[in-house]
Design a protein around this nucleic acid. Structure first.
Lengths: 151, 151
DNA sequence: TATAATTATCTCGAATTCGAGATAATGAAG
DNA sequence: CTTCATTATCTCGAATTCGAGATAATTATA
């Protein structure tokens, strides 16, 4: 096989990887979404609430960094969660530019009930692989992701 | 280690897999999007055009199945590509419910120019892994994805 | 101190996607 | 042939996300 053909095959392989990656995550996401939907939350709202539940109060700006959405979107999501009484805004006394998002009692109670179930749902959704296969995939995905990120 | 702790660890592993998978694909998608943006196309438009370019004319309904978007979204995307003169609608003579999306000369010329570059861009983006690592990951992702899909 | 640059949040309009339902054509069953 | 179910496309309104830019507070610099 000459170099050109070899290169073409490699390109096909990468393209296939990209497609399979996209499809696999789509399937998983769909299941996770189903798991969350009954709470009246979408994945973004859940992610924000989970962040505050697990990591404590967060400046609104930090939320966007960790959940990877734009600042204008964060405002929107926090608004929604605030309307649902699951979190509230609390101004920072030391820096008046900053607003913290703080989980409410209702939010904590909801997550106490729901988060364990959520984890076990993801466990079931990902049961197509053995534990050691998952560990390897995590490692490889990190390699792949960090490389792409660093470009 | 007792059974409960073991189970907790497994759940953490699945959760981590889900997060790493999401992040890796985000990084890759961002790069791919950059590659396409200069054409004035978003990823969905590109996917639809690519489908018709590589697989020939498609009933509009089939496009939605393959690119995984809702029928109402397909109408919107095809409208946009038609306005850009990259494809056009052609009624099916045998079944008057069906409309084919057909690539135009301009669309073909664009893809002739761009598609090879696109593949090589993805090759570069995915260069964090060796070929045999990619092959393994494809295989494992399929296992994971099919399982989740079948739930 | 005054000025400039940076940071955090928000507003607004646009783009994209979806779901529900409308319309029209086809196929199946009696 | 009529009626009913199915299929393909489209319309419409709502939800979500983004980017550009506004506002206000803070920090750095001359």
């Amino acid at each position: 096989m000459n170099n050109q053909n070899k290169n073409q095959q490699e390109e096909e392989l990468s393209l296939k990887l990209f497609i399979v990656l996209t499809r696999a995550l789509e399937s998983i996401k769909r299941r996770v979404e189903e798991d969350i939907k009954c709470l009246g939350l979408n994945p973004t709202e859940f992610a924000v609430l989970e962040l505050i539940y697990n990591k404590g109060d967060q400046p609104i700006q930090k939320i966007g960094q960790k959940v990877l959405i734009a600042s204008s979107s964060i405002t929107y999501v926090v608004d929604k969660l605030e309307k649902k009484n699951l979190l509230k805004r609390r101004p920072c006394p030391k820096d008046r530019r900053i607003t913290y998002a703080t989980i409410t009692t209702a939010g904590t109670e909801l997550m106490n009930d729901v988060f364990p179930k959520h984890k076990s749902a993801i466990q079931e959704i990902c049961a197509g692989l053995e534990n050691n296969e998952k560990k390897l995939m995590i490692q490889q995905l990190k390699k792949l992701g960090y490389y792409a990120q660093g470009l």
